[in-house]
Design a protein around this nucleic acid. Structure first.
Lengths: 248, 248
DNA sequence: ATATTATTGTGTAAAATAAACACATTATTT
DNA sequence: AAATAATGTGTTTATTTTACACAATAATAT
């Protein structure tokens, strides 16, 4: 919040005290604030989203994003990290704020404004410590309806991801540390929902100079194994100025 | 907000009632929510931002963004439009949400989470109905310090604008309805803070097929006058698929 | 009137990037 | 040993971006 002034008193400023503002902030005009996380994963060559069956009896056959109220003494972003930790058992996940949804009627329990965050996780890691029986991965293209306005929130985050992944190297958060170029391409094809040219795809990523050849090969594939690479963040930072895209 | 479940009770769901959630939403965990608007203008070939001298006695020598608390019965976006209307007297301004700032200590009056909006206005129109003596246009490159964390909010919105203007035709909101290509280029140079090649600039905009030649020329310029154009939103919608950029 | 000034309006060539496309190689399976 | 299925690699073409110069025009100064 910034400066408020009564419309009837234009041109007269310095009329408010901090104390007056404090009481305004502490008593009236408050709303419930929540965070909803759209957590993407990548498994079996499909883009997935982590959902939970609604806690609420009335809505128990609907799926929902993972969210919670922001606590009064908690930074907004910390709130999102807390939800991720509670739900996945994982720390240090990729997390970015996408949009805030604040229509009056969006939540049946009253005025709840929700800040949407997008998170990307490595499904393999998550599998080992799945915490909650009601949490499930859903194919993104199977999402037809969600609780409240969560479909709208999901759509916004999915579009955001499709755009963002073409400008920033965030897809690696969805893959194991070591991956083949085929896996990387499958990921991009799943996110963008279109086929890409294999040779041009390889050329493009190699030219960006942030993939490190691990000198290893895929195991247990029923065909010639591909080389394994890892994403090197330092090399990314060093080279990103020289690329063509805005700031991939 | 979405689904909350006590950490101590994993795997057990459908445990909450809507009523229970309602009381949670209505009593505890509430915060003050505000909207802060970064209002850009373009005048004398410079990008400007509309600021107000702080209302608060304690901070009366600091400048501030234009904001207010969100009312309990007001859509978030409507809150932003209300602020714009109050401060500029103008309706139907370009407005887009940019980011939400929710650190615990960001506001001295208590916990205030703020949603930042970016707005673009035609300064010529605004001049005619300036409402408030404490409102002033500031060159964006003169902004060194603002109230609270408003500099951070401003920076985020300015970066957002620089990126957004290269993907969407929103710069026209900053210009008069009729403008010369030189004015348009000056605008882009001011926003991006760099020189552009005049011939390539013209070629690019003409190729996008949304500028309509008004058959008029500039008046009162001390040199050969340029032709005047207007931005045609319908033509933009019709042709935007055919361009090179992501979705300029 | 004339010259001067400042800016408009226009096209092409070179460079960089993106797109299209085929075949030999290598593990695995049969 | 043959069949399978995917890897690894380069070139050609099309498209996009960049760099760059000069004649035309209206206003101003002389």
């Amino acid at each position: 919040m910034a400066e408020t002034k009564t419309k009837s008193n234009p041109g007269q400023s310095h009329s408010k005290t901090l104390k007056g503002l404090q009481s305004e902030v502490q008593s009236i005009n408050r709303v419930a604030l929540s965070v909803d996380c759209v957590i993407f994963g990548f498994d079996e060559n499909k883009l997935k989203v982590l959902l939970i069956r609604s806690d609420l009896k009335k809505y128990q056959n609907k799926f929902s994003l993972l969210g919670d109220l922001v606590k009064p003494e908690e930074d907004l972003e910390d709130s999102a990290y807390r939800i991720l930790k509670q739900r996945t058992g994982m720390d240090d996940l990729y997390l970015e704020q996408v949009h805030t949804f604040g229509e009056v009627g969006r939540h049946p329990a009253g005025r709840v404004v929700s800040v949407a965050y997008c998170s990307l996780i490595n499904v393999q890691h998550h599998r080992l410590k799945t915490i909650d029986n009601d949490l499930h991965w859903h194919d993104v293209d199977s999402i037809k309806e969600l609780l409240f306005d969560h479909k709208k929130i999901f759509d916004a985050c999915y579009k955001w991801l499709q755009k963002r992944v073409q400008e920033h190297p965030l897809g690696f958060s969805l893959l194991p540390n070591k991956f083949s170029l085929r896996e990387l391409q499958n990921l991009y094809e799943a996110i963008l929902n279109k086929k890409l040219d294999r040779r041009n795809f390889r050329k493009k990523f190699f030219s960006m100079n942030f993939l490190v050849d691990m000198g290893e090969e895929e195991q247990n594939v029923p065909h010639r194994p591909g080389r394994l690479y890892k994403f090197d963040y330092e090399k990314y930072e060093k080279n990103k100025k020289t690329w063509s895209g805005i700031d991939f």
